[in-house]
Amino acid sequence: MAAEYANASEYIKHHLGHLTLGDKETFWAIHVDTMFFSILLGAVFLFIFIRAARRMTAGVPGGLQNFVEILVEFVDQQVKDSFHGRSKVIAPLALTLFVWIFLMNIVKLLPYDLLPYLGYMLGLEYLRINPTSDVNATLGMSIAVFFLIIFYSFYIKGVTGFSKEIFLKPFGIWFLPFNFVLKVVEEIAKPVSLALRLFGNMYAGGLIFTLIALLPWWIQWTLGLSWSLFKLLIITLQAFIFMVLTIVYLSMAHEDH
């Protein structure tokens, strides 16, 4: 497909661009491809787990049930190791984040030109299939986690307890403005670091795939296969890191001492 573009710059621009609805120069625009594939992969996640739940048996489990049980036990163990409060939300949230982010990451390993080419044939200017390489998607997830952190901080510690944590720690009442600034920076850094870590790794991976696709065909397979195997490790690791940090941040919000 790279040969159909006038130059390498045009090819890279096409594969790194987004199908956008609205004015690209303003805030009021939406990346349609990011939204579509995010929702689609979320639906895939729900379909797999609902199907496994309906086929659950106490006898000899099938392959799908074994797979889902392994995932649930793995995530449950991470919650037990990192979360020190009591909540019925944290484990399902952690499981959802891990599997959903993994699915949004792994679509990057599909044949690189396939879906963008199909979009091109349908007259779409851009079509990116990897939602986590869009900073809007990763920021959206991390901001949702941030709101949960703030909610549980007030819910567990109360307005008085959380206010004391904001204004009086770590240096006491005499450094109240300084304490407040430190706390604000600390809290804002949580969603920003979550979002940018995931986005940076996925975006860089996509850029490398794009550069590999520009090489002669006889070397694309060697480099592409090697990078795909390494990328599979990164894909899993980034989903795991996002999940674990979410658990840790929410555990910190539940600490009322």
Rank of each mutant, 00 (worst) to 15 (best):
A3I: 07
Y5E: 00
A6F: 14
A6T: 14
N7E: 11
K13C: 09
G22E: 02
K24F: 12
W28L: 11
I30T: 13
F37W: 09
I39W: 07
I39F: 02
F49L: 10
I50Q: 06
R51M: 15
A53N: 02
R54Q: 05
M56Q: 14
T57Y: 11
V60T: 14
L64D: 05
Q65K: 03
N66C: 14
E69T: 15
L71M: 09
E73T: 15
Q77W: 14
Q78L: 06
H84C: 11
G85A: 01
G85V: 04
R86F: 00
R86M: 12
S87N: 01
V89P: 02
P92Q: 07
P92M: 09
P92R: 00
L97G: 06
L97D: 03
W100V: 04
F102E: 10
L103K: 04
M104T: 14
I106M: 10
V107E: 03
L109G: 07
P111Y: 04
Y120F: 11
Y120P: 05
M121C: 07
L124E: 07
E125S: 06
E125N: 01
Y126T: 02
I129F: 02
N130P: 00
P131K: 01
P131N: 00
S133W: 10
A137E: 12
A137W: 09
I143K: 02
V145C: 08
L148W: 04
L148M: 04
S153H: 00
S153P: 03
Y155H: 15
L168G: 04
I173K: 15
F178Q: 11
L182R: 05
L182T: 01
K183I: 12
K183G: 10
K183N: 12
V192R: 00
A195I: 02
A195Q: 01
L196G: 09
L198M: 14
F199N: 05
Y203V: 08
G205C: 06
I208S: 00
I212F: 02
I212L: 03
A213L: 01
L215N: 12
P216N: 01
W217Q: 10
W218Q: 14
I219A: 08
I219F: 05
G224W: 06
W227Y: 15
L229N: 00
F230D: 03
A239W: 03
F240N: 01
F242A: 10
S251T: 07
M252F: 13
E255N: 12
